[in-house]
Nucleic acid binder design. Sequence first.
RNA 1: GAGUGUGUAGCUCAGCUGGUAGAGCAUCUGACUUUUAAUCAGAGGGCCCUGGGUUCGAGUCCCAGCACGCUCACCA
Length: 494
Amino acid sequence: MTTENSNLAGLDQRTIRIEKLKKLENMGINAYPHIFNPDFTSKALNEKYATLANEEQTEDEVKVAGRIRAIRNSGMFMDLYDDTGKIQIFSSLENLPQSEKDVLALLDLGDIIGVTGTVRRTKRGELSVATKHLDVLAKSLQVLPEKFHGLQDQDTKYRQRYLDMMINPDTTRTLIMRSQIISAIREFLNGLGFLEVETPILHPILGGANAKPFITHHNTLDMDLYLRIAPELYLKRLIIGGLPAVYEIGRNFRNEGMDTRHNPEFTMMELYWVYKDYNDMMDLFEQIVQYAAMKVLGTTTVSFDGKTFELGGHWPRRSMLDLVKEETGIDFEAFETNAEAVEAAKKLHVEVPENASWGLVVSTVFEEKCEHKLMGPIFVIDHPKDISPLTKEHRANKRLVERFEPFINTWEVGNAYSELTNPLDQRERLEEQVKAREAGDDEANMMDEDFVTALEHGMPPTGGLGMGIDRIVMILTGSLSIRDVIAFPTMRKK
RNA sequence: GAGUGUGUAGCUCAGCUGGUAGAGCAUCUGACUUUUAAUCAGAGGGCCCUGGGUUCGAGUCCCAGCACGCUCACCA
């Protein structure tokens, strides 16, 4: 058997690797074996032999495994990486049997191997495993991106995320933190006695938010279905059924634009808690974010894009009308009619439809004039009633509802209410939505008779809260694009 | 959807006013039992995103398309 690779000259790198794979097979080696049991990770090995002196050699035989990320001195040194770090493999030509030398010559960067050998520390101080036996665990047929500059191409990073993860440690770190943040949220809510539930993703009727949907079709029922834009109306049915505290963490789908803060499918946490109102929800929102921040960062002081956010303590709570007044000098509360409000918006150079309602004007002016200044964290509270069809009327102001949106870094990171529980009121508001839809607003809610019927059976006073998980993860991980916190973001077909 | 930028070797990038394509890493060969972005010498490797056009001649200029980034619009 030859270890000579000169016959490979000029071939492309994948072909070369396939030829090497054939040579391994000809040597009776299965390059994709069923099992290998390493007894140390990089971290565990380094911890156990932390005190081993330079040039000290042990007789301790260990088995380690990982991906080859560097080969130096014609194979004498290899850097093996597992998820905990690096292990240097030392293969001395003097002590290595010919059969092992033959395997060594057929290894490439990117191959996953297992090494059986003895533990030593080199004179340069690098803890190493001195090879006795090499196992090929997976021959890699593809070339890894360059080690120094890494993988830069955004397209490849998103489409071949595994490469991004192998090469860029921050990518893996962010995805791990995402998982930890979601675990922390579950842990916190479960600790309060919440029940995690699952509700349908295929919805026959659109509801729970204002957004354009994805439409799909069920063949057997011969029926169009919507991918949910929000789980709200189903979660409320569970409250009506008697569950006192429920939450769901899952994907919502909205058929709208994509940018650094929007992905067509995104992860939302929604919860409902009986005998609570939106004030309680504000306390709860703060606590959830603070708990998650402490879990993954150990602090509630968060650095993001050169800015610092203090997420600890109570966040300011400011009414939308106050913020608009502060910013524009106009007190929209003083306007009795829609026309007056529209007139005022025009003076501010904020475009609104000629027939816009008072509430739509207020929220549009808020979005145009205030939102981009809200570094937060801050709760914007008490929204206009006519833009909030599922929210209970404000106990002190009939034109408003008990609703809030938390903002961090000018981003809306959630939405919460004292939930509307009056079925007759709910029916009227949904009828308004239906009218808006008929008038061409394809983001308006549809009439959900079954939901209103459920409400008619009686729903206790309830606080509800939605949290945009992706954006919270962005803030806590310092990610500038939502695509960096989603392992496989939506991409155009290539 | 609009504007704008990018697309060249497996990867990261050069390529000026148009003249037959370059580097580093990776690959192959050799040297070196030494290292840690190992080093040294040599070699191979290109549908220059796609399709049109201008030109004697296009990676380069023009038009269209595709993909991605950024900004804006819609939205969470």
